[in-house]
Amino acid sequence: MSDVPSPVAAASLPAAECRPGWPGRAGAAATLGIVAILPLVLRDSYGRGLLIAGALNVIQALGLDLILGFAGQLDLGAAAFYGIGAYVSTLLVMLAGVGFWPALALGTLAAGVMGGVLALLTVRLRGHYLAIASLGFAVITYQVLLNWISLTQGPLGLYGITPPAGFTDPVRLFYLIAACAVLVFAALRALLASPVGATLAALREDEISAASLGIDCRRWKAFAFAVGSAVAGLAGGLYPGFAGTLVPDAFAPADSFGVLAMVIVGGIGTLRGPVLGAVVLTLAPELLRGIGDARMIVYGLALTLVVLFMPGGLDGAWRMAAARLRRNQAG
């Protein structure tokens, strides 16, 4: 370009895009260290069960945040994809004799395909309308699990499900699920730091503008739904071995709101947020057990207060506190 003033160096741009909620090396190492130590600290089966539930929630919240926070699609069907992953992988093992790992992969794939199909069927819907359609999908999925008795045993459920060989010990099962959570986190981080991140942001911000840049919004909505739902399906495939049983009530449509709350309380549209939200909202009801029946009231009140006074969620509050600390140290 001849009329550009003086040679322009890309170096004059802001250094590597510094994205909110992107952990540094130190933060990542500290988090991995804590994850490694946790099951050695929490030695009773109750504590270890809580750890596994927390790790499953982290995976689910990460998957939903890709769809909700990064691609901007109001998905209220998270529970359905969790259930599809759980039932497809478990039924493949129990009825077709498929090994655990290929069954887990197929359950993940099935949830991803269903997510992509749902996105294509609802491609003209946005905002509240998409929310209702995806919630409707969760209701249908739940009813199928409940009423296709010849396949799922309906409300009686499937019993005697064992964890994969080598992971029957709850500590090892926790490490397996935590490793999956770390892999999902790393994969999403790499994906979102690539041009895919900018593409999804364009889709979220303005579809007409995005299309004017050559972005096929249908395709990228389907992509976000497929990948996010596959992540939920992966969590679903890891769940039955931990629970030992599989009943449709574990995937009730209302459970989608639990995952939604984790994403929003943690910090929507960031990667650290859903992790924080999943950990805090897994622990909170348990820590409040001491106050008996009032605990769900306190829990609900706390949720409301976070949404009211921390618009960026826990992650946003954390970043603001860190920035204030830095300013004070500098000043």
Partner: peptide, 9 residues
């Protein structure tokens, strides 16, 4: 910058 980078889709 991100607005322009999105244009390189």
């Amino acid at each position: 910058l991100e607005n322009v980078l999105a244009g390189f889709y």
